[in-house]
């Protein structure tokens, strides 16, 4: 019996991630915050498909028909792959920003304004 505990954890992780992304000045920390939000959302999807005591959703080898839902796992897999791409792209932007600005502090990286 786990009740609502996973949803509380999901909410906590997402808010922690949003806090980090919004209030930290270091660009790497912003990316870490975004990754935390992503983990929270992935955990949310997995939790939605969980059935207490359910087995793996493989019909041909199932011992009983009480299984967890397969769709959220497929969604999570896709989301993880997209997350890897976005994180890698953002980190490579940071590398290039460091080359041009010699800083990864959001205070210094602001030539575009107005």
């Amino acid at each position: 019996m786990i009740g609502n505990a996973p949803y509380i954890v999901v909410g906590f992780i997402i808010f922690l991630g949003l806090y980090t992304a919004i209030f930290k000045r270091n660009l790497i920390k912003i990316v870490m915050g975004i990754t935390l939000v992503e983990s929270g959302v992935n955990l949310f999807l997995i939790t939605l498909g969980y059935r207490t005591g359910g087995g793996a959703p493989i019909f041909t080898q199932a011992t009983n028909m009480h299984m967890v839902l397969p769709t959220p796992q497929a969604l999570t897999l896709t989301s993880i792959v997209i997350g890897v791409a976005t994180t890698a792209l953002m980190l490579s932007f940071i590398v290039m920003i460091y080359k041009h600005y010699k800083s990864i502090d959001a205070k210094d990286v602001r030539r575009l304004k107005g």
């Binding site: 975004i34 969604l75 976005t86 953002m90």
Partner: peptide
């Protein structure tokens, strides 16, 4: 060759990634 283009791209990327994740949350 321009630092500004990476600055703009990073800003846009951060916003669009977070908004994409919120979209996924709504889908969930």
């Amino acid at each position: 060759e321009r630092g500004e283009s990476f600055e703009a791209a990073f800003k846009y990327m951060a916003y669009s990634t977070i908004s994409g994740l919120l979209l996924l949350f709504a889908v969930g």
